[in-house]
Amino acid sequence: MPEILVQYEAEIWQSIGETFIMVGVSIIAAILVGLPVGTLLYLCRKGQLYENHFIFSILNLLVNVTRSFPFLLLVVFLLPFTRMVIGTAMGTAAATVPLSIIAIAHYSRLVEQSLLDVPRGVMEAAVSMGASVREIILKFLYVEARSGLVLGLTTSIISFISYSTIMGVVGGGGIGDFAIRYGYQQFKDDLMMYMIIIMVILVQLIQFTGTTVSRMIDKR
């Protein structure tokens, strides 16, 4: 192993751990909140099963506004909220707040798009069989859209990694922050390169896994 990596081994592991925490929490938020929000966007959309202009417009606006913020500004804008939720606006835990919010907005849009690919007829067949809303979603909608949902999550996770790299501004740490502070600011170009390589490998692994899984579960 190159000497510089050995020298900074502890810090590197720590920064990788921070990235995993930030991205991990984002993924959880995306699934627990982004998936239902995306599903609501889909169901309430004009011409869909539970068309509801009011709910659709509100969610649509929230998602659009969140996504149109330059991410750095969103982080700053959310500082008071973060402080309220976490107790502090600095550190890895605090960094997960704006990351989760962008994660929800990001993934919900991709969820909505995947669900729009489900043929309307399948939904109608479900209704004609007497399925409840819950059954329609779980036994039909998600089953039929599952490969798109996985592919969307893959894309989202890769974006989350990218977003997490700037969380150094609030002391969130992570691989990106480490590369900037030690590599760039201390002129250790080789260290920065190694960090970039780690990120590239990480992204490749995620993309490969996502693509493989999505292909495996697609029987259409």
Binding site: S128, M129, F140
Partner: peptide, 29 residues
């Protein structure tokens, strides 16, 4: 609706379910 069957021009089967599962889902509901 459970005692009114319906079939369609474009079949409207769940593509990600097997033949067996497509029939079974109606029983589960």
């Amino acid at each position: 609706r459970k005692s009114i069957g319906m079939i369609f021009q474009h079949f409207n089967l769940v593509a990600n379910k097997t033949v067996y599962e497509n029939v079974a889902v109606s029983l589960k509901l």
